[in-house]
Amino acid sequence: MEEGKEIIELRFKALEQLFDQTDPSVLSQRELTTETEECIISNMDVVHMRKPVRLDLIFPPGSSTPPAPEIIAAVRHHFGYLLEEHKREAVIFIRHRRVSVVFAGVNVIFGIIYASILYLNPELAYNLAWLLLGGLIIILNWTTIWDTYEFFVYDGRLMHRRKKVMQKVLGSEIRVVMDDEPGSGS
C-alpha cells in the first residue's frame, strides 16, 4: 500500500502478454488478452470497492514497449468497451428478469387455482389425473420460483459487482513501470 492506495502489480515479460496480437487495431484501441483482462478484474475484485487502487503494469527494462500513455489509453479503452457491453447485456438481463417474474406469477396463480379446486372438491384428491396435475404444478412452481430467485439474488448481484469492478479499473491510476526486480513496484 502506498499513499493510501492499494497497489496491484502485474508483471509482463513482453507486450504480447498484455495485448491480443490478433487485433489489428491501433495500439490505443487494441484489446487486452483474455488472461490479462481476467487477471485485472480478479485482482480489482479482491480490493474493497471504496479503496483507491493503482494498477502497475510492469515490464522488464529494455523491453520494446510503446510510450506509457498509449498503453494506459489502450487499457482504459478496453475496459470502457467492456463496460458499455455490460450495459447492453444488463438491458437484456432485465428483460429476462421480467419474463421470469411473469412465469413465476402465472405458475403461482395456477397453484392457487388448483389448491382452491381441490379444497372445494376433496374427492379429487383420490383422482390420479388430479394428483399428477398437482405434482406438475408443484414442480413448475418450484423451478420457476427458483429461477426467478436465482435471477434476482445471485445473477443480479454478480452483474452489479462486475460493473463496479470495471468502473473501478476505469477510475484507477494506471502506471507503466520498467523494473526487473520482483516486488519492488516502481
Rank of each mutant, 00 (worst) to 15 (best):
L131H: 05
S42F: 01
D20F: 00
V47N: 05
P67L: 10
E38C: 04
S186H: 07
M44S: 01
S100Q: 10
R11T: 08
R30G: 02
V106S: 05
I109A: 11
K13V: 06
W130T: 12
E173R: 11
L27F: 03
D155S: 10
A115Y: 05
E123F: 12
K87M: 07
I72C: 01
Y154E: 13
A115N: 11
D147W: 06
E181Q: 14
V177K: 03
G62F: 09
L170V: 10
P60W: 05
K87Q: 11
V26K: 10
G185E: 08
M178R: 13
R30F: 01
P69G: 02
I92K: 11
L158N: 06
M44Q: 02
R157M: 13
F59N: 03
F19K: 01
G105D: 13
V165D: 02
L170D: 05
K13D: 12
L158P: 00
V176C: 04
M178D: 09
Y149Q: 11
M159T: 00
T36P: 05
P67C: 01
F59Y: 09
E35A: 12
H86D: 13
A73Q: 07
I40C: 00
A68M: 04
P24C: 10
V75I: 13
V101Q: 09
G135M: 12
E70H: 05
P66W: 03
V177Q: 08
D155Q: 14
F93I: 04
S186G: 07
T65A: 06
L32Q: 03
L136N: 07
F152K: 03
S42N: 10
R54H: 00
V47M: 07
G135N: 13
L82A: 08
T33R: 07
L131S: 09
A115W: 04
E16A: 15
W146C: 08
I138S: 07
D147H: 09
S186T: 05
M1I: 06
H86Y: 04
M44L: 15
D56A: 12
G80N: 14
K163N: 06
D56N: 14
H77S: 15
Q29Y: 10
P182L: 12
A68S: 14
R50C: 02
V75F: 00
I137V: 14
L120I: 09
D155F: 08
L120S: 11
Y149E: 09
I117S: 04
L10W: 00
Y154I: 11
M49G: 08
A115G: 06
A74I: 08
V177C: 07
L82S: 05
F12Q: 02
F79S: 00
V99C: 04
N107C: 11
A125D: 08
G183H: 09
I174V: 15
S25D: 13
R30N: 03
Y149H: 13
T144F: 13
L32P: 03
E6Y: 10
L132W: 07
H48M: 08
L55A: 02
P182R: 08
L128A: 11
Q17I: 02
Y154R: 14
E38A: 14
I8T: 08
I72V: 15
